[in-house]
């Protein structure tokens, strides 16, 4: 990755948004989902993006994960402008560096847990044996080893979300994006999933970007970025941010 940092001593931020705007439609019917948002996330940080529905928090996450293109502004990953990367390089980046956990699990119901977890590895082009070994290893750390050959449809909600986390971890990502990771779970199960995510952040140094409207979950993160009507209204790490960005 190219180094594009004014402070050579510090590593570039894992993710950086500069003047991001996203709007839909044009002129009269124009809707601004996001307006001039700048944000910098260090590697290993745990950031909660908080806001009501329609505040633009999911849009921000999608832009940071290069799933979508901003109308204005740029996204830098490890200092590299995402616009300078080819479609192939972006696919590769998402495949190797990012893991995704969604509120709806997006598991393939009729496939086995193992097949679901190996999907990113299959996309990466790993050999069958290597995929299997890696997936079983991850499932083992999440206490799901004995469920490996069960069909995804037979799992409980908590098991499903743990399978999703296993899938996100399989590719050994540096960043995990979680969109309402506990939204579909009861509070006890939700707590287990939360613990799991924070443990990964703490012990493996995986950067966590959690989108949530749950204040308790947000409070457990190092940093809370609050969005309203597409603008950042508060950022608990703002002073640090000023020092790092630009």
């Amino acid at each position: 990755m190219a180094i594009d940092d004014p402070h050579p001593s510090a590593p570039p931020p894992a993710l950086e948004a500069v003047g991001l705007s996203k709007h839909y439609g044009s002129s009269a019917s124009r809707f601004d989902a996001l307006s001039d948002v700048s944000l910098s996330i260090r590697a290993g940080e745990c950031v909660a993006i908080v806001g009501k529905s329609g505040s633009g928090k999911s849009t921000l996450m999608h832009l940071l994960a290069v799933l979508d293109e901003p109308s204005e502004g740029e996204v830098r990953i490890h200092g590299t402008d995402a616009r300078s990367l080819s479609a192939r390089a972006l696919n590769r980046l998402r495949n190797r560096e990012f893991g995704f956990v969604f509120q709806q699990f997006f598991l393939n119901a009729q496939q086995s847990v193992l097949d679901n977890v190996t999907l990113p590895l299959t996309i990466a082009g790993l050999r069958r044996g290597a995929r299997r070994a890696r997936a079983l290893e991850v499932l083992g750390t999440l206490d799901l080893a004995e469920k490996a050959s069960a069909k995804a449809v037979t799992l409980s909600g908590g098991q499903k979300q743990r399978t999703v986390i296993a899938r996100a971890l399989a590719g050994n990502p540096s960043v995990i994006f979680a969109d309402e990771p506990t939204g579909n779970l009861d509070s006890a199960t939700g707590a287990i999933v939360e613990d799991l995510l924070f443990t990964l952040n703490r012990e493996k140094g995986i950067t966590l970007v959690i989108v949530t409207h749950d204040d308790e979950l947000a409070a457990r993160c190092d940093r809370q970025v609050v969005l309203r009507d597409g603008r950042i209204v508060s950022d608990s790490a703002a002073p640090v941010l000023e020092g790092v960005a630009r």
Binding site: A65, L67, A87, R88, L90, N91, R92, L93, R94, N95, R96, F100, Q104, F106, N108, L119, P120, I123, A124, G171
Partner: peptide, 12 residues
Amino acid sequence: REIGLMKAMGMG
């Protein structure tokens, strides 16, 4: 959704 997921995971 499955297609979306595969694309998010970097399938071209």
